[in-house]
């Protein structure tokens, strides 16, 4: 039988086998990088502001007169992750209905943006918010007061939707 060996030990030459020069070479590479320009960011002290096209956590648009949402439940229906629960109720306003309960389970949400796409009222949009930290499962279920964001803060996204949707 003709057995050929090709182990790591056979492939390395003498200098490689004694390691020390290789370690020095590696340290040299690291040292070299220290003087090059930096790309990293000091998160969370230094926060990145995404563009309007960014899909952060979905939020509800709040106008001066109240929420836009009419509790039609389409976002809840289309959500592939079943993250949204909406309960409608009747209001005296012209739009007839509003959500008494609107909850998004951020442990379920996959940031697909389908809810934004389906909404007939442009009432739910993807925000720029990506700092999502929760200490319990309960806390990750965001209720209406945590979801509502004044329309002024969502201008970038609304503008993006106007242009590209």
């Amino acid at each position: 039988m003709n057995i050929t060996k090709n182990t790591e030990a056979e492939r390395m030459n003498f200098w490689e086998k004694i390691y020390i020069p290789e370690i020095a070479r590696g340290l040299g590479l690291t040292l070299n990088q220290v003087f090059k320009p930096k790309f990293t960011r000091q998160y969370p002290e230094e926060v990145w502001e995404p563009e309007g096209s960014y899909r952060g956590r979905p939020v509800l648009v709040k106008e001066e007169t109240g929420e836009r949402c009419v509790a039609c439940g389409l976002c809840s229906r289309v959500c592939p992750a079943l993250a949204i629960e909406v309960q409608a109720s009747e209001t005296e306003k012209d739009k007839e209905r509003y959500p008494v309960k609107f909850e998004i389970n951020m442990l379920r949400c996959i940031f697909c943006g389908f809810c934004e796409e389906v909404c007939p009222e442009e009432a739910i949009v993807m925000s720029k918010d990506y700092h999502l930290v929760f200490q319990s499962q309960e806390e990750a279920i965001l209720s209406k007061d945590k979801l509502e964001v004044p329309i002024a803060k969502l201008q970038d996204r609304l503008e993006f939707l106007r242009q590209y949707r």
């Binding site: 509790a71 039609c72 439940g73 809840s76 229906r77 409608a88 007839e96």
Partner: peptide, 8 residues
């Protein structure tokens, strides 16, 4: 009125 959508 408005208790639920039909598909739910």
């Amino acid at each position: 009125r408005f208790k639920a959508r039909v598909w739910d």
